[in-house]
Design a binder for these strands. Structure first.
Lengths: 217, 217
DNA sequence: TCACGGGTAGACCGATCGATCTACCTACCT
DNA sequence: AGGTAGGTAGATCGATCGGTCTACCCGTGA
């Protein structure tokens, strides 16, 4: 996985040093927290474990992240930042072909992300561990709403019959596919998801707009 | 929610008393554990909390469930038992109309379950908190595999073009809808999901089989 | 009559949780 | 030369974790 190295979405200041680059220690902490939180769950991973595996001191960690909640927020902020960057890049790559952009969004997901998401969606997983308006649940709602909005926008440009509902359906498929990748042993997950994705799109499109179709066969 | 009162899926003997009925205390424990584990997460809820809110003693709890893992397994076992019962009942209600059974599965989900699943899928949530072959992850894989199998069977009886892939797609939609119900604020979730469900089914059916269509409008 | 299963009550265990503290060290910039 | 930001090292805090223990009680069935 290639999350952006910037840990810039934390609750407090990004803590750029005087030289302008973010702290090395902070990056190591965030990298370790990302790995452990995602792979094993948030409550299951203690602060001291992150300290040990990132090779920093307790004081250093608490200087950058005054509480575990702050670290959690930074972890999910990084993840969200990655998703924003990736989705925007794909859509921007096809400024005049929203239909192609939609297909590409699904393709990239299957090609790059499913393999690195063997534990499912970090936002869903985090939300499962907390209640109410905890930062993790807020972050999950936000990123999902944002992605849904971008999908809706693409569908609208395609004169989709119901861009809002269509975007929600695509989100269902996407969400279900990521979860399935984490829990099911489906050798055909990629094809199943891509087919599902295309079917849902085309079902609401005006008759003429032909689908690019599954890459092969 | 109306989970079956029987706490019969635990790892050890169901502990029927001499009179034949399962222990009152055991039921109270399971009921409390279900509520707290589902609403707040498993790691977030301590044993003493369950003891306090179920009104039993530490010794009593540990007599029925020797470890927290046993209690977790029993919690998910109850949930799985409920799903089995419900899905079987719906399918059995339409022995000669698998198409109708499929629609009914989705309808019941939107009518009864979405409201009671404001925290998403208990199996997905539990799986997020543990690693490897923990009982929670095994239970999640099992129930998902079982539901997928039942869906595939219905599609096969309908001469669906790809019963396996079709069932996987329906599971994606179902999973995504449950998660969406927990994290998104979509007032049209029910309609969106039902439409999605029907579209995915019909896309793979031979031309003649007409869909029942959304109940209204 | 009495053994036993199932329950209550509460002290107690070591381990770990998240978080704070003091003390010192070391680059770098002014 | 000296201040400061960012780091190391490690003891320590109270709270809570999952789990064990002893002691007593009570209803039922052999």
């Amino acid at each position: 996985m290639t999350l952006p190295a910037r840990g810039s979405v934390g609750p407090s200041t990004p803590t750029p040093t005087a030289t302008g680059q973010t702290s090395k220690a902070r990056e190591r902490i965030l990298l370790t927290a990302d790995r452990l939180f995602y792979d094993e769950g948030i409550h299951a991973v203690g602060i001291q474990r992150i300290i040990a595996e990132s090779g920093v001191t307790r004081v250093t960690l608490y200087r950058h992240f005054p509480s575990k909640d702050d670290l959690i927020a930074a972890y999910l902020g990084r993840r969200a930042s990655y998703d924003h960057t990736q989705v925007d890049a794909i859509i921007d790559a096809y400024p005049d072909d929203p239909r192609r952009a939609l297909t590409e969004l699904a393709t990239v997901l299957t090609r790059d992300d499913f393999a690195a998401m063997r534990r499912g969606c970090p936002f869903i997983n985090a939300s499962a561990e907390f209640t109410g308006a905890h930062a993790s649940r807020v972050a999950a709602k936000e990123i999902r709403r944002w992605v849904t909005g971008r999908l809706e926008e693409l569908l609208r440009r395609l004169d989709h019959r119901d861009p809002r509902g269509g975007a929600e359906k695509l989100m269902m498929a996407r969400t279900g596919a990521v979860v399935s990748g984490a829990l099911d042993d489906n050798r055909h997950l990629n094809e199943d998801f891509l087919e599902c994705w295309e079917q849902l799109i085309d079902a609401g499109l005006p008759a003429d707009a032909s689908a690019p179709g599954p890459t092969s066969a």
